[in-house]
Write a protein that binds this DNA or RNA. Structure first.
Lengths: 214, 214
DNA sequence: GCATTAATGTAATGAGCGTTACAGTTGTAG
DNA sequence: CTACAACTGTAACGCTCATTACATTAATGC
């Protein structure tokens, strides 16, 4: 167990094959959803036979869960609060919203797949769905922490409410972009959203006057 | 129509069969999506054989499109502006948001299916998807008209922006509810949304400029 | 050299899919 | 009664699906 594993794996192109399979699966699943993603299609797209896919992954469920897992970092990075503490809160919220918007535009496959997994309900829940919801909850907690930092006096319920609303807005705007395509300009919409979040945060700050957060 | 008694409707009753098929299809498709909806499942759920389904509908695509078409009224009714002109605009927007929230809670299958159809992209677009987007656009136009009435001074672009944001928020909150279930209380969230919409409207009406951000 | 392990290639399995063919049944019209 | 149209029932078609069995190649350890 303690011997160097990196040496062993170099025998063939296993590592790169795995990556190619995941790339192909992410592309297909992000466009066609869970059911619409067939092993044959992924196989064709990555140039490797089905047996290779089943060598690297237990089954289709495992494959798509791995796609979700690998893509989490994209989300995670978009949720770091930009600027520093001397900047006004509203600008920082707006910048954060802009980051999220950019992420959605740059790699829409991940969220599209996640939302499809979220909406579908089948008798046996795919582990990919569970994985997405888990990852999404991490993102939510992180966002709540950011909001709590921006409004230190707000109570936890208020923060949670605004965080939920923030994510809901992002989801909805993503869908609007999916539908409208080029006719939808996300920037003013996310500005609107950032403004709404900031206002809500200010308003919901409990009891004592909100410490000047703007 | 009822020239004869109960004997008339004994066997050859296609109208009710059609309704039963549509009910079953709406239920299945609203939960499992387009691909997940098999004719066999719908057949089992409505108690009629597959041949009956194919007698009433051209094919699966036609069936699901019919499901979408039939459910439009639910949406349409939710988008009539409550109250009268003497009521303050903010209350009316809040009431409207409440209506939409109630609709989403009462019959979530329709929107769930619609959003799944929206997100999925396959080589041949299902006519059900086209139908949903068309219906959704009607709803959007109607909402824009309501907003224009509430803010007569705002220009058309601003109204469209707010309408898009309004629908995006509703979509996102619906998804939040789908994920969170009972732990998500939609009421304060939709109040928050209504407030955001109202603020955006007044801001656009008063200033003439959307925002000065960025 | 040989054995072992990682990975690929080939081919098949059985199940479920959408769809159709077609015979059977029932209400209505002539 | 017969004829016919509106359905329903049974059974199959061809196809794709996820998955597996198994032979094969290539790189490593001994």
């Amino acid at each position: 167990m303690t011997e160097s594993r990196s040496e062993r794996k170099r025998r063939a192109n296993g590592e790169e094959s795995r990556r190619r399979i995941l790339d192909a699966a992410a592309e297909v699943a992000g466009v066609r959803g869970y059911d619409g993603t067939s092993i044959a299609l992924v196989s064709e797209k990555c140039g490797l036979p089905a047996s290779s896919i089943y060598w690297h992954f237990k089954n289709k469920d495992d494959l798509i869960a791995a796609v979700i897992e690998r893509s989490f970092d994209i989300w995670a990075d978009a949720l770091t609060l930009p600027g520093d503490d001397t900047d006004p809160a509203r600008e920082r919220v707006t910048a954060l919203a802009g980051q999220v918007a950019k992420t959605l535009l740059d790699s829409p496959d991940f969220l599209r797949l996640g939302l499809m997994l979220t909406l579908e309900r089948r008798p046996e829940e795919p582990s990919a769905r569970r994985m997405f919801l888990q990852v999404r909850d991490v993102a939510r907690a992180r966002l709540a922490a950011v909001l709590a930092m921006l409004a230190p006096d707000a109570d936890r319920d208020a923060i949670d409410l605004v965080a939920t609303y923030a994510i809901a807005g992002a989801d909805g705007l993503f869908i609007a972009k999916e539908i409208g395509g080029d006719s939808v300009d996300l920037r003013p919409l996310f500005d609107l959203h950032a403004r709404a979040l900031h206002d809500a945060l200010t308003r919901l700050t409990a009891g004592g006057q909100a410490t000047e957060i703007s």
